[in-house]
Design a binder for these strands. Sequence first.
DNA 1: CTATATTAGTCAATGAGGTTTACTACTCTA
DNA 2: TAGAGTAGTAAACCTCATTGACTAATATAG
Lengths: 163, 163
Amino acid sequence: MAERPKDAEEKELEALEAAQVDHLGVPLWRASRAYVGLMMAGYRRLGYHDLTESHTGLLPHLDIGGTRITTLAARAGLTKQAIGQMVSDLETRGYVTRAPDPNDARAKIVRYTKKGRRFLRDGQVVKQELHARCRALVGEKNFAAFADQLGTLADQLEKAALD
Amino acid sequence: MAERPKDAEEKELEALEAAQVDHLGVPLWRASRAYVGLMMAGYRRLGYHDLTESHTGLLPHLDIGGTRITTLAARAGLTKQAIGQMVSDLETRGYVTRAPDPNDARAKIVRYTKKGRRFLRDGQVVKQELHARCRALVGEKNFAAFADQLGTLADQLEKAALD
DNA sequence: CTATATTAGTCAATGAGGTTTACTACTCTA
DNA sequence: TAGAGTAGTAAACCTCATTGACTAATATAG
């Protein structure tokens, strides 16, 4: 290995080393992770230690008037089984209740409890703080354009992912 | 419930409904998810069906000259146990090898196999395509600024997450 | 030149967050 | 009114990553 056995391979390695481009996926992922982390930290500071990321991701999809499992699944982009599990968790922890739908005996309606509504209210504060922080980081002037471009990117990439 | 029992609660609900702000976390998460999805789809189109997201996330951290498990863990922001598992997976699938470090008998050095280098090369193509796609979506003119702002946001949010 | 602390890596158990497959119960429609 | 479609549940499994406990090798303080 020390007496120059393969020049071709060496060249290949150098070429690979040079080609390491950093694509948009990296900052996108890092920003997303950090954002969620800060949100969870905010919730914990307010005393919500029993909620995981998936819980806090689900709750905003729940309408004030109550929502069906299937609807939640569609909104969150998950299977209804997954939502069913989360709802059970949240029920155990006292944030939501599951009641039969008077209009359809198959369906059940998930609703906030009082504790759930309190979380929702507190959550708004956390989100607004974080949003303001981002606004400051990006810069007041650029923020609107940035948010708009990010939104477009998310929309278009999701559309592209459907092939 | 139909004869106006609680005006206070009704008001509360209305207020909550109105307060649903959409924060930056949502598009950030959606864009990140879609991006990764498209990358994986690209890899699959090239015939890489045996690699998961975590594998493709790890490989770029591996230097051409080989890298220690601990170093990989630090770069990826994961525990060395987690990296150890992934490396074992990738070893089984034939993308990397694990060799003893001649300078430190405790350590092992993870290196690409020929198959691994081929993946790295193909991966560059996939990433470049996707990057170009994003560039077009955001707009040629705005792209540099956008990428820069996104990078800053990621950096700062990560720093903020350290408290 | 030991005694001790640190570092590299592994093993095993566990947990979070989902998925697929298979099923029951109800509703809608032809 | 029979059959297709829809709402939800149950169970088994998968991926990704964690914590805790451990071995072996190295570095360092006395």
